[in-house]
Computed example of a mutant assay.
Amino acid sequence: MINITGIELKNPTILAAGIMGTTGASLVRVAKEGAGAVVTKSIGPEPKEGHKNPSMIDLGYGFLNAMGLPNPSYPDFKAELAIAKKDAGIPVIASIFGGTEEEFVNVARGLIDSKPDAFELNVSCPHALGYGASVGSNPDAVESITKAVCDAVDVPVWVKLTPNVTDIVTIGEAAQRGGADAVVAINTVKGMAIDINSGYPVLGNRFGGLSGRAVKPVALKCVYDLYTALDIPIIGVGGIYTWEDAIEMMMAGASAVQIGSAVHEGLNVFSSVASGIEEFVSKREYSDITDIIGIAHERL
């Protein structure tokens, strides 16, 4: 059992936003596979169809996607969130996005009746014009949006950070000043692929976000740097496939880990990672799982 921003998780594995989080039934399915918590698909103020296909490709060492934040918008998602809350049996975090303070607040208020355990603010998607990283690369915008949502709701607020900035710590500090209860690091890294036979970019949007094993070193460094500067918990995400990956992320400073791309290889990843962490902590005779958080900072 681990406590993150006042939310009790049976283990430190969390389904990342955007992966199997479009319906209540899919969130419940992940919960039954052993996840400690689940995060919904990012939900916005208006329905979005997303970018044209191809919107996701497997590179072999990771995935490149440009989904474009497709979602039904908050009025139509309320019922799905309520189903997840009723049947999942674990904490359900609502991921939300907007282009302004007002839009973020409207979405949060629109979903609050479905009783999410927390909100995760998506200020980090790299391929949705006017949203995500377009907002999340500006510290003043991150601080003001975070404050506005924190003032509007009475549940914890997590802020998901983009790595596509010069200094992620500056953005993390802005989220903390705005009242964030935790930060989530990282979202995908900007990237693209080109078909050498035609010369055309492969993705319909031309560029997208890289996820999977390839981004783990980037995510680790971001978590490590944030841990040195922030007083709030960090949830690590990016390239978590095994319990060893999770331990490494927690030693860098993460209080819990989110799993996304690894779901492609099977939903048993949650139970596998959770049991591996538990066994590691037991064999090493740590008194508690929290003992490993940030210990890489002590090895200087």
Rank of each mutant, 00 (worst) to 15 (best):
I4T: 00
G6D: 01
E8G: 00
L9K: 03
N11Q: 05
I14W: 04
L15N: 12
M20L: 07
T23H: 10
A25T: 14
V28Q: 05
E33A: 11
G34D: 11
A35D: 11
G36N: 07
A37P: 01
V39W: 02
T40I: 00
K41V: 05
I43D: 02
E49Y: 03
E49K: 12
H51I: 11
P54C: 09
I57P: 11
I57G: 03
G68M: 07
L69M: 15
Y74A: 10
K78Q: 12
A79L: 12
L81Y: 06
G89W: 15
V92G: 02
A108R: 04
L111N: 04
K115I: 02
P116H: 00
P116F: 02
E120D: 13
L121T: 09
A133N: 06
S137Q: 12
I145F: 03
K147S: 07
A148R: 08
A148V: 12
D151I: 00
V153H: 00
W158C: 07
T166S: 06
E173Q: 07
A175I: 11
Q176T: 00
A182D: 13
V183L: 05
V184L: 11
T188C: 11
V189M: 14
K190P: 01
G191Q: 05
M192D: 02
M192P: 00
I196Q: 14
S198D: 07
Y200M: 08
N205K: 15
F207T: 13
G212C: 11
P217A: 15
C222R: 01
Y224E: 03
D225H: 14
Y227E: 02
D231R: 00
I232G: 03
G236K: 07
Y241T: 12
I247F: 14
M251D: 01
A252K: 06
S261E: 08
A262R: 10
A262L: 05
E265L: 06
L267I: 08
L267H: 07
N268W: 14
F270P: 01
F270S: 06
A274Q: 06
S275C: 07
D291W: 08
I295D: 06
